[in-house]
Design a protein around this nucleic acid. Structure first.
Lengths: 340, 340
DNA sequence: ATGAAAGCGCTAACAC
DNA sequence: GTGTTAGCGCTTTCAT
């Protein structure tokens, strides 16, 4: 690899002068600067970050640590948001994966520390609380989609799912719906509780309730080996003499199964039954017909926010708050307007 | 950050001895080794990769360059495959994104060179040929999902889509299907041509043909702003007095639209019409009911293969071939067995 | 405006 | 079995 001395030799100056040109130091003659710049371009010189790291103890690298290489591409938009934002900075991204194993997590921290990352963005697939030892107190860290481990304070970025649910319920009620059902997420994941509670609160605000018989299971089983049962439970429900006019679904996959269940019975969405999803997984929501009204998880924004916070954190301390990111209701075709 | 000298001081030895312990050099007394190891753990010492890079001109970092931060998570499994494989090595991954812009691509190469990456894995979202200047001849590179730019030879990893199509057609014919239709991909993407040609060849092998009236458009418009029209075209087709018994779809999204079209007409899959997708986008294929029979793109395997090749490439030259990765037909519920 | 020397963290080569 | 010296690519400090 070509180094600063090669450039210096070609330009006929000292290495120090090349360094000055590279860093736009004013105190260098215009003619010299031109000669050096030419040499840099000609040789394709790029400063060695390893050497820079040794000089000023800043690597210019941010570690991105994820917990699971999941088989489903749920929260990859967080990564996309991070990448999109990082491109506008001078930082680079080193990605590591804990695979959910504490031991692997320790290896990851070692790897990141070896590269002397300036800070770490820790991203989890599903919203959850971190276990002791998952983070490293010696490294500046921003959490995304998760809560700090007990006894620890760390800035963390979360989706405001309750807000999103409020908006979805408002939309359904405004469209004239009063008979409301829900197809739950797998209870083993944290979002299951968050969303169901949010739905009940939002309904209560409109003096509406969720009848037990219209609150169905959508997915079951151990995490990552869970089975979707929404097709079966919704099929049963839709065979009853009386059923809800709209079905809120724990996520878009459950909504797709609900749609399949309706189709299997020869029913139409939304004329026979309305559907509202959650997540805004666009490969489902924008492609199925009718398109699916849903609550979008602001993953991309959360990734961007993480980059913003991480830069502040590198400069100095940052408040160790939960930073809530708004969830928006996306109105599409699967919610019928019941108003006359 | 704690350095090798801090460890040496605590252990009461020279820095060189610490280095020997870190690298498992045999020529060090057991007692000394124990003392040094203790000091390392106690201080949480991790060797500085920047310093290592300067010593042996090997960064232990592999650059992963992608072209597009797409809004759809298509080929992210390639990245997952890369990550899963890299974890078993001593390499780290630095990710950069060209966003499809040649200028941004040049910035990315600079960034990777600055970190003195040992090699680069260049991944494209859609199969395509690279444009001049997208790669950098001074950096060892493996291509994934794309072909080298004209006049350049580079090892590249591709999915064997023709093989996958053969297998899908074999399955459909074995299930007794003779009336076969096709819903095309957006013709602006390379896979559109590859898949349609592969389908026609595979059918010809069984003395079957694809009637023009059963060959529909599935998506149209400029790339990344394309519109899916499969819902409309399939709806039209299914209203005809005679229609195919099975519809091959350019990808799983198109298949989801075909399913929606059938549902909209009150038809059942697969009893009224069979469907075969492409890609194996599991959020669709495993969730919709019936589950979708499809051809899986071996993205995960391709990522793994890339890591294997990149390691060989770092050691020495690698044949600049296209490395084809097999596509498998995934049999699920959407193909009806027509045999008596 | 430019250069020389010293040192960042680490190890190869050579002592002892 | 262990320590010393020198130098990797670069910048800081101090000359010139």
């Amino acid at each position: 690899m070509v180094g600063i001395k090669d450039v210096a030799a070609v330009a006929g100056v000292s290495d120090r002068t090349v360094s000055r040109v590279v860093h736009n130091d004013k105190r260098v003659d215009a003619a010299t600067r031109a000669r050096v710049s030419d040499a840099i371009v000609q040789l394709g010189y790029v400063p060695n970050r390893g050497a820079l790291l040794m000089r000023h103890n800043r690597s210019g690298v941010i570690g991105v640590m994820t917990d699971v290489v999941s088989t489903t591409p749920y929260s990859t938009d967080i990564i996309r948001g991070i990448q999109a934002a990082i491109e506008k900075t001078d930082f680079s991204i080193l990605t590591v994966n804990t695979a959910g194993h504490p031991e692997q997590a320790r290896r990851c921290w070692r790897e990141l520390k070896g590269h002397r990352v300036d800070a770490v963005i820790f991203v989890t697939m599903f919203q959850r609380q971190l276990a002791p030892g998952e983070t490293d107190p010696s490294v500046k860290t921003i959490l995304v989609n998760c809560h700090p481990e007990p006894g620890t304070e760390l800035p963390h970025i979360l989706p405001d799912e309750a807000l999103g649910m409020d908006r979805a319920v408002d939309a359904a009620v405004a469209a004239g719906h009063r008979k409301i059902g829900y197809v739950r997420l797998n209870p083993t994941i944290m979002a299951a509780d968050i969303r169901e509670t949010a739905l009940r609160r939002a309904l209560a605000r409109h003096d509406l309730a969720l009848p037990a018989k219209w609150c169905l299971s959508g997915a079951e089983g151990p995490i990552f080996r869970d089975k979707f049962v929404a097709f079966d439970t919704v099929t049963d429900l839709l065979r009853q003499p009386e059923s809800p006019s709209v079905l809120f679904c724990g996520n878009d996959e459950i909504a797709l199964q609900a749609f399949s269940a309706a189709a299997g019975l020869g029913l139409r969405v939304p004329s026979d039954i309305s559907l509202i999803g959650f997540d805004d997984f666009t490969v489902v929501t924008e492609i199925m017909r009718p398109t699916l009204s849903t609550v979008a998880l602001p993953y991309f924004d959360m990734g961007r926010k993480a980059v913003e916070l991480v830069q502040e954190l590198i400069e100095g301390p940052v408040a160790t708050l939960p930073y809530l990111t708004a969830c928006h209701y996306i109105s599409r075709e699967s919610l019928r307007d019941m108003n006359p």
